[in-house]
């Protein structure tokens, strides 16, 4: 009796700890264990707090060179936009009739700028830039927006410490927001 109670208690606490009914399902034994090396190669997402940012650093000065070589064709000489999104300016326009959404005016977290540039840019050769050059071009775009000084050198710690102008500009979904006729 005591034993059964103990078993039951263990089972209950195990279910509670996991918290999802799905855990009670049968397992099929399909799939291979993912190795640490496999995970390390693909685990590229960066948290908004800068978690998972790689070692290395990059300067605004180096970023200017990378930008001129890799980015201006789509984003313009000064990040004013073209085939690609506008990256610069627009601060103070979000509540106006013609809001301008850029890295400077809209993007909420600096570390995810690194994330996006590394995973998706340049559009013709994503994941081709070194981590140092991704830091550098992130620093350059932030400097064009007046968010870091022109002599800035960014690494994991300093990138995570930046407070973007629009960090607090997002609200949760309140819909349904339009009611019956």
């Amino acid at each position: 009796m005591r034993r059964l109670d103990l078993k039951l208690a263990l089972l209950v606490s195990a279910i509670a700890a996991v918290g999802f009914a799905a855990q009670a399902e049968e397992r099929y034994g399909i799939g291979q264990p993912a190795t640490q090396a496999e995970i390390a190669g693909w685990n590229i997402d960066i948290g908004r707090d800068g978690s998972n940012l790689p070692p290395g650093s990059g300067s605004v000065e180096r970023g200017r060179v990378v930008f001129s070589e890799q980015c201006v064709a789509c984003h313009g000489d000064n990040g004013q936009g073209g085939i690609g999104d506008r990256l610069v300016g627009g601060q103070g326009t979000l509540a106006s009739a013609k809001p301008i959404r850029t890295v400077g005016s809209y993007w909420p977290y600096a570390p995810t700028l690194f994330d996006y540039i590394r995973r998706a840019m340049p559009q013709n050769a994503p994941q081709s830039l070194s981590n140092e050059d991704v830091y550098a071009v992130s620093a350059y775009i932030l400097s064009l927006n007046g968010i870091v000084p022109q002599d800035a050198v960014l690494d994991a710690k300093s990138l995570a410490a930046i407070k973007m102008p629009n960090r607090d500009g997002f609200v949760s979904d309140p819909r349904p927001d339009v009611h019956d006729h």
Binding site: D45, G47, R48, W107, T112, Y116
Partner: peptide
């Protein structure tokens, strides 16, 4: 993760 697609 607050990726570009879900923020910017």
């Amino acid at each position: 993760v607050y990726s570009r697609e879900e923020t910017s």
